[in-house]
Simulated scan of single mutants.
Amino acid sequence: MSPVSEPDPADPVRHWPLAGLVVRTPRLELRPDDDVGLAALADRALDGVHPAEQMPFLEPWTDGTDTPGFARGVMQYAWRCRADLRPGRWSVNFLVRSSGRVLGMQTLTGTDFAVLREVGTGSWLTRAVQGRGLGTEMRHAVLALAFDHLGARLARSSAFADNAASRRVSERLGYTDDGVEQHVRRGRAAVLLRSRLTPQTWRRPSWTPEVDGLDACRELLGG
């Protein structure tokens, strides 16, 4: 009788299937965050995400890059998202890599996804690689994952009115207006523009992302 082999204790996919998920585009590889990659992500945040006089985020997490614990806070945020992830409410933070180097983060979120079939997106890239179309490419990647592989029917996004770069990405991909909100940003009122996208209005790229490792994640994501 052949001996029964034990599972590899070093294989995290057994208990955390997201560790095996990957989405590949012509220039990028997106994988859910891992601890080694998060340390590199914190370094990219320290390198700079936007000019100091701007604030593109609802939560001004990029303020205070010169304070002790900033980089650790970047990692702790991702750990909280990972710890809170469950089928009814999830936020998957994909580390965006090019040639093995972490460049930023692309987030895909879902609430009651099994019923609503809606996702949200958010992202950032280190300033050194902005302006090369990578933000568009990584958004296409998670939209393909959501629409073509998870069966999403709607994707939502939002950007402040003065965040021209993010708004251009949404317009380029086919998003349509979905209302406005007012928020307090650095002590002043700021207008947030919401947008929505369906599989029918999505302006698909000329390439098709490669998705591996998703089947093991479907129960966790409600897909």
Rank of each mutant, 00 (worst) to 15 (best):
A144L: 03
R185F: 09
R82E: 11
P12Q: 05
T198D: 05
G37A: 06
R31E: 10
G222M: 02
D11V: 09
D11N: 15
A10W: 14
G174Y: 03
D148Q: 12
C217M: 06
T198I: 01
A189G: 02
A10I: 09
G179S: 09
A165L: 07
G88N: 07
V115G: 12
D84Q: 15
F113T: 07
D162R: 08
T25M: 05
L108F: 01
A10Q: 15
G122N: 15
R101E: 03
F160S: 02
A146M: 10
T176V: 14
P12M: 08
V13G: 01
A190N: 06
L21D: 02
G20I: 05
G223M: 08
Q76H: 13
A155Q: 01
R172E: 04
P7S: 01
L221W: 04
A155E: 00
T198Y: 00
G37M: 04
P7K: 03
A71F: 07
F147N: 03
F94G: 03
A19G: 10
A40E: 07
L221E: 04
G88W: 07
R168Y: 00
L221T: 07
F57V: 01
H50Y: 14
V180F: 01
P12N: 11
D212A: 11
V180Y: 00
T121P: 00
A190K: 13
L58P: 02
D84V: 12
V22D: 06
L41I: 03
H149G: 04
L108P: 02
G179T: 11
S195D: 13
E137F: 02
S123C: 10
P26V: 04
G73A: 13
G174P: 01
V115M: 14
D178Y: 12
R203G: 01
V36H: 14
E219A: 15
M1L: 12
D35S: 13
V22H: 01
R24N: 12
P68R: 04
T111W: 11
V142M: 00
R89M: 14
T111G: 06
G100F: 04
L150R: 07
G213W: 12
V102T: 11
A114Q: 14
A128W: 03
V13T: 13
R168M: 05
R204H: 05
R186T: 03
R204Y: 04
W61D: 06
G73Q: 08
L46F: 11
N163C: 06
N163M: 06
A152N: 07
V23M: 00
F94I: 10
A165H: 04
V92A: 09
A83D: 15
A71M: 09
G122F: 13
Q130L: 11
A164H: 13
S157L: 05
L134D: 01
E59Y: 08
V13H: 02
V92Y: 03
P205M: 03
F113C: 06
E53A: 15
T109Q: 13
G187H: 02
F94C: 07
L18P: 06
R44Y: 00
D212N: 08
V96I: 07
V13N: 02
G174H: 06
E6C: 13
F57L: 08
R185G: 05
Y77F: 15
V13P: 03
T208P: 04
S91D: 13
A144Y: 12
G187N: 08
L103W: 00
D162F: 10
G73W: 00
T121S: 06
Y175V: 09
R172Y: 00
R188T: 14
P3N: 02
R89S: 15
G151F: 12
T65D: 02
R86T: 12
V180M: 03
